[in-house]
């Protein structure tokens, strides 16, 4: 069953414009959020589900303004709490496509607890995590994904925090769908989001997103064609990058290492298997990310596996009686009564 299996289909085709709200978009010029919004609005009609059955819940931060700009149902909520609120929406209703829009501060700092629990429960929601490695809305403090040593207003001597790797965190939390994409790669972004929303269960998509004001070009190295920094993950394909010149192979001690393709046997190159039940290879691939300077980063779907879905299982236990009043009256009365004449 796909993530949208119970969401009613639109009776007539919808176009992109119908997902554009009447609100003026107020992100900074050049913000990566525009690209994600445009990709999202183009993608939605292709999913074929009814517009009114789409719900977008966001937290706080620049990216969390997203729901205001999409003409569907939406809630701009509280810092860090969107996964919790979205869990309530998804648990209450099986006929809604529930999206969460969040950022690196929102999801990984103040809301870290809700993120990991939504992932481990495997609630049927799709989480778009806009990672710009900086706090934008509060004007430029380091975030939980900023590189160590980052000089910001709140870290003039350089941040001494070690950054999170959101993909590794999600895999550690038991997430069943984990992917990474880049705001500037519209095609890849659309493919990954489509796969994510069709996945039944919790999907986490980390989107590398440029903040031109406070952290410009944080992902510049990943944006050139055939960039040696991008390690494309394609299900069923050997993991090579830099125009095929570099390959990921398993070393003698079991870790994954990078070697020039020319120096290794083709049979030794790791073949990506996103549907592997054991997440440890996906976790190893996540470790290839150079967390400090992003001089290397796998992009694509790390993991996509089926596991019982929280809201489906919870709903299975709930039974609405045909006659609610009669059933409740029986419970109210209980087994132990006495009568006063």
């Amino acid at each position: 069953m796909t993530g949208l299996a119970q969401v009613p289909l639109a009776l007539t085709p919808i176009n992109r414009k119908e997902f554009v709200s009447d609100q003026e978009v107020r992100w900074c010029p050049g913000c990566g959020d525009y690209a994600v919004l445009a990709a999202f609005q183009s993608l939605m009609p292709q999913l074929g589900v009814r517009r009114e059955n789409t719900v977008i819940v966001s937290g706080i931060g620049c990216s969390s303004r997203f729901p205001y700009y999409v003409d569907s149902y939406g809630m701009h909520s509280i810092h860090g709490r969107a996964p919790a609120i979205a869990s309530g929406v998804a648990l209450a209703r099986d006929d809604l496509a529930v999206w969460v829009v969040t950022g690196d501060g929102d999801a990984l700092s103040i809301g870290g607890n809700h993120l990991i629990h939504a992932l481990r429960r495997n609630v049927n929601i799709t989480i778009m995590l806009f990672n710009n490695r900086i706090y934008g809305l509060t004007k430029g403090q380091f975030s939980p994904t900023s590189e160590t040593g980052k000089v910001t207003k709140s870290s003039p001597a350089g941040s001494v925090d070690a950054p999170f790797n959101p993909v590794a965190l999600a895999l550690g939390a038991g997430a069943t769908f984990v992917a990474r994409t880049i705001d500037s790669d519209r095609k890849h972004l659309t493919e990954v989001l489509t796969a994510a929303v069709n996945h039944r269960g919790a999907s986490l998509v980390e989107i590398y997103q440029n903040c031109p004001i406070f952290n410009d070009d944080a992902f510049a190295g990943l944006k050139e064609p055939d960039s040696p920094a991008v390690v494309p993950l394609v299900d069923g394909q050997p993991v090579t990058f830099a125009g095929g010149e570099q390959a990921v192979v398993r070393s003698g001690d079991g870790t994954l290492i990078v070697r020039p393709t020319a120096e290794v046997d083709a049979g030794d190159i790791v073949v990506h298997d996103a549907s592997a039940d054991d997440p440890s290879v996906a976790f190893q691939l996540a470790q290839l990310t150079a967390n400090q300077d992003l001089s290397r980063s796998p992009i694509g779907i790390f993991r996509s596996v089926d596991r019982p879905v929280f809201d489906d299982e919870a709903r299975r236990q709930v039974h609405m009686p045909d006659d609610r009043s009669a059933a409740l009256q029986e419970l109210i009365t209980g087994p132990d009564t006495w009568t006063v004449a």
Binding site: A84, S87, A92, N113, H117
Partner: peptide, 16 residues
């Protein structure tokens, strides 16, 4: 997972 999520989920369900 915590008190905050508990009320958050209740609010989400109310919205739904």
């Amino acid at each position: 997972e915590d008190e905050i999520a508990a009320v958050g989920a209740a609010l989400g369900a109310s919205y739904a």
